[in-house]
Each structure stands twice: as structure tokens, then as C-alpha cells.
Design a protein around this nucleic acid. Structure first.
Lengths: 337, 337
DNA sequence: TTGTATGCGTTATCAG
DNA sequence: CTGATAACGCATACAA
């Protein structure tokens, strides 16, 4: 592959001159510039990003760490980031962490080896202390979907407690008094916080939430189905089902439907996230909108600008980037009769 | 960030020695090796991937070009690639092409600037000639979901004609004689080929497919809804609906249900792809399995091995990597009464 | 306006 | 077993 040197030789000029026209530097004669440009075209010259990164000490790239590309939620997240990256002309380096401390760390380290100084990472398994350390070292480090007080100015996150309250209150407002929760079995913050929010709202309303009416399972459709089967088998009594996410809610709904219940007439079901599936399933799922794409885009922009202007980050030390979910009313929730 | 030089200084040895322990090179004393290793740990040394790529003339990365991360189909594709990349310890560089010639080319060129010699690209908009040129230049260039005779040994693709035949034949076997097709309006090969397969099967069975019963729309749920609305408005007569993909089929189904038709009792609907949604929607969609994740994984492996052993590619010049879809029977298709 | 020289972090080829 | 040293492709301070 042609290098800057080859171009220089072909054009009968020095490396420096070629480098200048590549970078649109000043101080180059118009004729020389034009001539060199055509030669570059002819020879199919492509700047070597690695060499550039090496000499510039920065990489024009944006790292992304997410759990799993196959999960629609993360795909949307990645998409939000990718959109910004393309606009800013930076390459995205993608790594997956699969919600395991070891893998998440490895993913970040790989990114670090590529010297990408801007990255948005979704980490659930890594400890606060590790993340704080990383965040301090890496100028454009942005944590998405997690809040850590010490580095809150590098966190773009959703208020899950508010979310839990919101979904419970929505049901309460419609007259529901008997609740079941289909939660995630993973020991990470999100399910705790959402459950917390739910509990707070119910307590405030004076409604009891029997621990037996909370089922923990894998946060996917199958997990939702199983959880609902368990609830039903146990003879749990409820008219409102709160799902940890849309997949679980949809799964729970499937089981209910299969068992002859009517949704929403007999039982109302609400999801969380508002991924595509909530619009596809029948009845269409009432859910909470998790503005993940918007959040991801903001995270990407923050990462990029903090990386290029570290002082900008310091001057915003007391800021944080909090989002709140909103209710999307569709067909799976109804007033109690 | 600490460099190899810093380590050398701290350890009181030369660069060469440090480099050797980093690469597990031979000829280093055990004590020296151990000492250097601890020093590297202490100083938090991380090899600079850019410098490495520069001197090695290769990049330990895998480029991916797809249309849109937000599309579940592409997310699954990307996931298949990512799985292999992680196993082989290479970084994935992701770029999107959004089915536009210009953008697709730009995406590939960016990858090229990063000197990644292995890449799997999904291109629909670029011309054969351009792709052929690229494929010849780049050792590990693999084209996914597209077949080009001249570079067939670098193509991993699905037989869409066979797919079209398959879906039509499935309906025929169940007694259907009145067909409607909900196709994509994009001027790319896939819809043509699928339609071709459908036509071939119907002709062979002596069943007529009225051109008025083919509707072209955007290949998503909304497009499916609109297409079906048009069909219905026009008073088209059919008992079997063949969708371009699952999203369109689901959309068509939604409209049918909304209009009071029963699926599959009145009308049968079949999709294509077997993405998540086909299992979530109600009734569950009968569809064709597009083994995209498997294909993507194979593509990634091919790309990586061709990149590291170019001769291997040459010795397989007459091979190609063709896949055939299979029917996944679920709930949206029934025998005609 | 153009050219020369140096260094970015690493690997590899030599000597020692 | 270990150490100099020359690349790799590029940008830039400094000369001319």
C-alpha cells in the first residue's frame, strides 16, 4: 500500500510537503498541492491510521463496551453511539463484556491498548472502585446506565427508582391493588432499584406486596414465561404484573394467554424499556420508555468532547446526566373492574 | 502511559529484553523475565496496539460493515462476528453503510485506513466491479449475503431463490392457491430473488400470481402494515401471504387482525429471517430460518484465516459458502379449508 | 514555499 | 542470554 514516501518520490517533493497537503496544512503552493492530490488519487493512497495515532498520541476512535450485541436493547444503544461516531468521523471499536467482571475489564483494556481515549462503557459487573480508577485515568471515559457518585460527571444514567415508582403508580391509578412482579435474577443494581421504586410507591399507597408475588428469573422472554408459570402454579393472586423489562413482560403475557387468561381484561401487564418487541407483541405492551438511544448519543458526544478537551470535563465536575423514563400507553394495561 | 522504554529503564535492561518478555520470546533468563513482569504490572504497562500494527504491518482486528445496528437482523449478524473475534482475541472495528454506495465505500475505506486486513462486509449498494476490485486487494475480504461469481470463494450467502420456492411450496402443500406477496421496495437483489423463487414455484404448480397481489413497501413492520392495507383496500383476494421478512409479515398480520381477519384460520402468513420477533408476535410467525449468526461466524473465521494465510484463500478458489433457509413451523400458517 | 531531521512505541536483526 | 539499532508511516519544529 502506497505510503507518504511513495507519493513524495512520485511527485518529486519531500515528505513534509505531502504531509501538509494531506492535512490541509497551510504554506503549500496551489500547483504543488493540486499535483500531489492527483498523484495520491492515482496511487490510491490511504493514510495509515495506526501511524497517525502513534505520532499524534490520539486515535480518532470511540470505544464501546456493551454486554451483548444480540440483545435489542444493546443493539439500540450501540446504534445511538454509532450515529455520533459516524457524524464525527471516528471509528468505533466494539467490545463485549457479557456482564462479567473479568470480561468487562478485558474489554476495556483492549480498548486501552488501542489508545482510544474516548469510550462509553456499559458495566454492571465491575466494582465501583475499579470504574472510578478507570474514569479518572481515561479522559473520555463515560459510564452509561450506571451512577457512581464520585464520577457522576461521567455518568449517563436512568433513574430506575423513579421508573419503578412510575409503573406501580400507573397501575395504582387504574385501581389495581394486587400486584405481582417478574424481576431479574441477576445481582445487579437495576432490578433492585426498580423493585425499590415499586415498593416505595406501593407502601405510600398502603398496598401490600407479598414477597411470594415476586418472582426472579432470567431477564428474557423465557424467563418471563417461567416466572409467570411459577406464580400461577403457586396460586398467586394478582391483577397487575410489573415486568423487569419488555421481554419478561411479553413472556409473562404469553404464559397468561396460553393459560386462558385475558390480557388486559383479567390481568394487566406492563413492561420496561420500550424495545421494538413491545410494539410487535399482542396485545401491544404498555411499557416505560427507556430513552437509550438518546442517552447513548449523549454519552458518545460527551466521551468525544471530554477526550479532546479534558478541561471541559473538569469544569463540569458537579454535573451528571440523569434521564427519567416515561409511560408509553398501549394495550396491555386496563382499569380493574 | 508507560511505554516499553520506561519499563526497560526501571528494570535496568534494554528495550529488546522487555519486548521479548512481552511477546513470550525465548532467550530470556527466568529471573529477568519475572522481574520485568512484576515491573510491568506495577507500572500498569499496556502494549500500544497502534505501534504494534505499524511495525508488524498487520492489525489484529476484524472490520465489520453492516447497514444498521438498530436492525435486529444486523445486530445478530454482528453478534456472530463478534463471538469469533473475541475468541480469536482481535478487536472488531464496526462501520455502518446504510445501503448507500457512498457510505458503504466510505465504511470500507475507513477500515482500510486502519489497515485491518480481515473484514466481513455486507454491501447491497456497491457495484459488483467495485467489490471484486476490493476483494482482490484485501486478503481477508469476505462478502456476506451476496454472491458474485468472480469472487465466489469470498462469499458467504443465502440461496434466496430456494427460499422463495420454499415458502411458496409450503403454502401450496397446504392447499393454498390464492397468494399475496408483501415485498420490499428496495432495488436490491434480495427481494427480486425471493420473488423469483416464489414465481418459479407457483408456475411449476400452475398457480397464478396476479401482479396486483404483490405490494412493495419498506421492509419493516410499518411497511408491512401499509402494504396489507393497500392489498385490502384494493379488494385483493388471497388466503396466503408471503412476507419479504418477519417484520413485514408481522406488520401485515397486525393489519389483518385489526381488520377482523383471523390468522391463520382465514389467512395464512409466512415470514422470512426468523428473528426474535417471529417468536414474540401473536400468533407466532411461521417463517424461514435465515441462519445469519452461523453464517456471520463462518464469514469471520474465513476473513481471519484468509488474512493470515493468503495462500489458503487461493487454494480454495472454486469453493463458495452457500446456505439454504429452512421452514420454521409456528402458528401463522394453516391448511386451507 | 519547501526540505531535513527527529520521534512516536514497537519488533526484529544483528552483534556481543 | 542480552543490548544496540534500524525500520514501520507519519507529523512537526526548525532550517533554508
Amino acid at each position: 500500500m502506497a505510503t507518504i514516501k511513495d507519493i513524495a518520490k512520485a511527485a518529486g517533493v519531500s515528505l513534509a510537503t505531502v504531509s501538509r497537503v494531506i492535512n490541509d496544512g497551510p504554506k503549500v503552493g496551489d500547483k504543488t498541492r493540486a499535483r500531489i492530490k492527483t498523484i495520491m488519487k492515482e496511487m490510491g493512497y490511504r493514510p495509515n491510521a495506526n501511524a497517525r495515532a502513534l505520532v499524534n498520541q490520539k486515535s480518532a476512535s470511540l470505544g464501546v463496551v456493551i454486554a451483548e450485541l444480540a440483545d435489542p436493547f444493546f443493539a439500540t444503544l450501540a446504534h445511538g453511539i454509532e450515529t455520533i461516531a459516524r457524524k464525527k468521523n471516528v471509528q468505533v471499536l466494539l467490545s463485549t463484556g457479557s456482564i462479567e467482571a473479568k470480561t468487562e475489564l478485558k474489554a476495556i483494556e483492549t480498548l486501552l491498548e488501542h489508545r482510544c481515549e474516548a469510550m462509553v462503557v456499559h458495566s454492571k459487573a465491575l466494582k465501583d472502585s475499579v470504574l472510578i480508577e478507570l474514569a479518572k485515568q481515561i479522559p473520555g471515559f463515560i459510564l452509561i446506565n450506571r451512577y457512581i457518585e464520585e464520577i457522576k460527571h461521567q455518568c449517563v444514567w436512568l433513574d430506575n427508582i423513579a421508573g419503578g415508582q412510575l409503573m406501580a403508580n400507573h397501575m395504582l391509578k387504574l385501581g389495581h391493588k394486587k400486584f405481582a412482579v417478574v424481576s431479574s435474577k441477576y445481582q445487579i443494581d437495576d432490578p433492585y432499584q426498580r423493585l425499590d421504586g415499586i415498593r416505595q410507591a406501593l407502601i405510600k399507597a398502603g398496598v401490600e406486596l407479598n414477597e411470594e408475588n415476586i418472582e426472579y428469573s432470567s431477564p428474557d422472554q423465557e424467563g418471563g414465561e417461567i416466572a409467570m408459570q411459577n406464580l400461577l402454579t403457586r396460586g398467586a393472586d394478582f391483577t397487575a404484573v410489573l415486568g423487569y423489562n419488555d421481554a419478561m413482560a411479553a413472556g409473562a403475557m404469553t404464559t397468561l394467554l396460553d393459560q386462558g387468561y385475558h390480557v388486559p381484561d383479567d390481568i394487566s401487564v406492563i413492561g420496561y424499556d420500550d424495545v421494538l418487541l413491545s410494539r410487535y407483541c399482542r396485545p401491544k405492551l404498555t411499557t416505560l420508555k427507556y430513552p437509550i438511544e438518546m442517552m447513548a448519543s449523549q454519552a458518545a458526544e460527551l466521551a468525544l468532547s471530554f477526550a479532546s478537551q479534558p478541561n471541559l470535563r473538569e469544569s463540569n465536575k458537579d454535573k451528571t446526566y440523569k434521564y427519567t423514563p416515561t409511560i408509553i400507553k398501549r394495550e396491555s394495561v386496563l382499569k380493574t373492574r
